[in-house]
Design a protein around this nucleic acid. Sequence first.
DNA 1: CACTTGACCTGTCCGC
DNA 2: TGCGGACAGGTCAAGT
Length: 311
Amino acid sequence: MPELPEVETVRRGLERLIVGKTITNVEHDWPKSFPNAPTDVKQFLEGAKIVSVRRRAKVLLIELDSSYSLVIHLKMTGQLVFVANSKYEKRNMKNGIGSLEESESLAELRFGAGHPNDSLIGELPDRSTRVIFTFIDGSHLYFNDQRKFGWIRLLPTVQVPEIDFFQKVGPEPLADDFLSRDFIARIRRRANTSIKATLLDQTVIAGVGNIYADESLWGARIHPASKVLDISDEQLEILYSELRYVLNLSIEKGGSTDRNYVNAEGKRGNYIDFARVFRRENLPCPRCQTTIEKSRVAGRGTHICPDCQKL
DNA sequence: CACTTGACCTGTCCGC
DNA sequence: TGCGGACAGGTCAAGT
């Protein structure tokens, strides 16, 4: 579920929270968390300082000052959550007034259960925690991943662009120099494939997943099962605009929390409140009030307005 | 080469 | 209440 806007939201949080910090300890309990890693990742990570946090497609790149980088894919249920050194920093924030317990209950009073900004996760580590990074100031970065699809790779920074995925992945849809004619040309590399499968293909365009495929296709009034061949340049031009619109809007809203996505502070995103079709089956289309339907296209749950989006 | 399907996983929900 | 099975969807490998 983390797609481009969710990964970008995590990236912005991490950039603010961990750049400049030095790693003092790394623990991981799931061997596949570091596939094909050097014999002992601790040896390569401990003592290294975070230089930058970047994103390409749905992949995060954490550059270290040791000439190595962490390459992280959250896949379906991955989370990267930063937790500051709790007791010391909380006491300082309260200027020494009141106990830790009191400051925590104040936070609960301020946000309340179910508030959009309420943290979605409890005490960490929890049973989904796969990797724990500890920094020199006592803060932690937790990599949680319920379904264990996500991974972290440790690579020499110069080798990062050489990995298969980056060799094949398409352009960033929000790049300033990514124009509608580029979008149309890339989409037209497919002909008999459905437009939804084409949007989801990371070698065509980077970063689009199920949520923003459905949302942008609704915006452009295109049926997700339409073959690329049957879609006009004019419609693709609109799809280009709608895709950039929904991706930008979602970044602005902090991404979509459909199930368990959270940002680098463990908080939910709010795009889903603005979604027009995704997860809105049996609700009215915001444009024409027709009941939204859910079906299956390209092997994915797919939401459409049957009146706005015809084959 | 173009395109589709299954595997990787676990938590949740639905029907019996 | 418990239990089996379907479902969630990003990517790669294997299949047509």
